[in-house]
Design a protein around this nucleic acid. Structure first.
Lengths: 291, 291
DNA sequence: CCGCATCATCGTGAAAAGCGATTGTTTACG
DNA sequence: CGTAAACAATCGCTTTTCACGATGATGCGG
């Protein structure tokens, strides 16, 4: 089998026209170059250079030219492979991140921006699926608001408290008592993932809000609140806060929505993924609480 | 430096999902595969596979995927290189042959046909230059009608006798005496190469033909003979013999045109070139004499 | 005919590749 | 819960390869 080292020697000899000069260029001795060429010639089945003898430069044979042409190509590609590895280790490369529309309206953009700033050459791909059973096999990382079975490792990023969102005049300022939700007209997310858990808890407490509208879109929910259709119980991070809306903590507090970062157990992270995890953790820790 | 052997192992492990099965496939032992991957991992600077332990298959890491992708490409190209070498040794490849219009009207087509039949995949390139100083540096072989200085090896293919060509009625059948050429209207090649030597000899003997037309084209010369412009003294091989022309040997014979096959001294021939030399020699030996 | 430049070859020591056996770990199955 | 099976890592060892320095062979130029 041909080896790259031998081909590098072949190229050096062809370039220099001399075994000795090729040896100098490569940091070998002349005899070593002779042997390497001999190995190649045995593998190729014929002489690769004509040795005129004396001070005349050696000349490639037709057979040698065949090997030389392919050899140069191979070496160039081996170099580009080494480059690709170096770039990857430096943080370049691709990362596939899974997310959910209902999550990370606040978190993800910040993480992505920091990641891009740190690794300008990287290729970040986002995959958004609304499902209870995420498929991590094709992803490096995934944001998710709950636990997941299987061979998954998870890192808890933050607790996102549920709040009541109303029009400023429709509800007395300050915290809201949970039982005040009973029979209240509410808009909310569809009853999947985290929302399902919230409604289960309310039901267990005998609290029956009146769900008048459901949508997956956070902005649509808030628009409905502004339009007076009803109030909203939703995770704080899903609320784009401004003066047209009033935020009320709940008492007693509902269990917060827990936001996790997931990845397949036992998997070695790319530098990019490792950095993304670190950034996500830091950004999550620095998020403002209820304002 | 990465070596092809290591990359082949990497690919086998990735394909098989197991160090042991990769070893079986490659004819190694499992421990050897472990070591090869370890070498690669040291070169790449990180793990290339996640080893879950137990019967679970090993899985490529992102870093490993980078190496794997390039490695497959490199190995495929190394294979194609080995193929190219094999094909070359079997007689495929390219051959560059130099020729002259005034030579090889008979010889070259036969040689080319035999060569193509024996090596259907080969690439034969012909270079025709009318010059007294042929340049062999870019050619594998060259047909030529004379000696050449420099580092040239030569193989004499055949003696091509000079003959007198006339219209059947214009000259008594049978051999012609050389002195009969004196003052005879002749058509001939331009006075270069072989033709120059012929005219030198005639002049030394005091024989002064009357050259009424010169052209490089053999067919044009013969057409002029048919048209009655004059007779022609030319090498036999240049004559397309038919009943419209009469061929006369010369007495005493002029030194024949010698046709050589030339190549640069000390150069290793490709199988194709070696075969071409052998064919040319055989075809030349089998050529018909004066008919 | 003798230096000069060059490549081939040989002997030696070092590095590596490969192997077999063993150990440790994880999974699957009773 | 314990055991067997599958698997990779590791260790000691042998064989092969690699690289070197020295020496010999060859063709060229004065």
């Amino acid at each position: 089998m041909y080896e790259l080292r031998h081909l590098a020697t072949l190229v050096a000899v062809a370039d220099e026209g001399s075994f000795g000069r090729a040896a100098t260029r490569l940091g070998y001795t002349q005899s070593s170059v002779s042997q390497q060429i001999a190995v190649l010639e045995k593998a190729a089945g014929g002489p690769l250079f004509d040795r005129p003898g004396g001070p005349k430069p050696v000349r490639i044979t037709p057979l040698g030219a065949v090997l030389l042409e392919h050899g140069r190509d191979l070496l160039a590609r081996a170099d580009s492979m080494a480059d690709a590895v170096d770039r990857f280790r430096a943080g370049d490369g691709r990362i596939d991140i899974g997310t959910f529309q209902s999550v990370s309206n606040v978190l993800l953009p910040t993480v992505i921006r920091e990641l891009r700033d740190a690794h300008p050459g990287c290729d970040i791909r986002l995959f958004e699926e609304e499902t209870d059973e995420p498929d991590l096999t094709e992803l490096d990382l995934m944001f998710f608001d709950g636990h997941v079975g299987g061979d998954i490792e998870h890192l808890k990023l933050l607790d996102d408290p549920h709040v009541l969102v109303t029009r400023p005049g429709d509800f007395p300022p300050g915290p809201a008592r949970l039982d005040q939700l009973d029979r209240l007209p509410l808009v909310a997310h569809p009853a999947i993932c985290d929302q399902a858990k919230v409604e289960q808890i309310l039901q267990n407490k005998g609290i029956r809000p009146h769900f008048v509208f459901r949508t997956i879109g956070n902005e649509a929910l808030l628009a409905m609140v502004r339009a007076g259709l009803g109030a909203a119980v939703m995770p704080l991070l899903a609320v784009h806060q401004d003066e047209t809306l009033a935020i009320h903590e709940l008492e007693p507090a509902l269990p917060p929505r827990e936001i996790f970062l997931l990845w397949q157990a036992g998997r070695t992270h790319s530098p990019l993924a490792a950095h993304a995890i670190e950034i996500a953790q830091r950004v999550a820790a620095g998020l403002p609480k209820i304002s």
